[in-house]
Simulated scan of single mutants.
Amino acid sequence: MNAIELFPTLRNLNRADKLKVMQFLVSELSRDEEPSLEHGATYSILSPLNSHAAAHQLAQLLKMENHKTI
């Protein structure tokens, strides 16, 4: 059954049932989009720790903000 075939049935549902269908579909979509982690796999973690470029950029932004407030 495809979506086009479901439309007449969905149209005849009452408001509460339509909301339940919407909640189900949103839940299904979010589950499909969640990243899944594999057991035993390693993943890199991005962090500004020990990143001199990030520290420099932050210092520049803070300096610009400081000049705006003066």
Rank of each mutant, 00 (worst) to 15 (best):
P48H: 02
K63H: 10
L58N: 02
P48W: 01
S27P: 00
L61M: 10
N12T: 13
L6G: 01
L46Y: 09
N14R: 09
Q60Y: 01
N50K: 06
R11G: 01
H56K: 13
V26I: 09
L46C: 02
R15L: 14
G40I: 04
V26E: 11
R15G: 01
H56L: 12
P8G: 07
S27F: 04
K18P: 02
H56T: 12
R15C: 03
E5W: 02
T9V: 14
F7K: 11
N50M: 05
L13C: 06
K18I: 06
P35F: 07
L61K: 12
S36D: 02
P35K: 08
T42A: 11
V26D: 06
A41D: 11
S47Y: 02
A3V: 12
L19P: 00
S47L: 05
Q57G: 01
Y43S: 07
K68N: 08
T9I: 14
R31I: 03
P35G: 00
P8M: 04
K18W: 04
H56R: 14
L19S: 09
L62M: 08
L25F: 09
H67K: 12
E38A: 13
E5Q: 15
G40D: 11
L19E: 15
K63I: 01
Q60S: 09
N12W: 00
R15D: 15
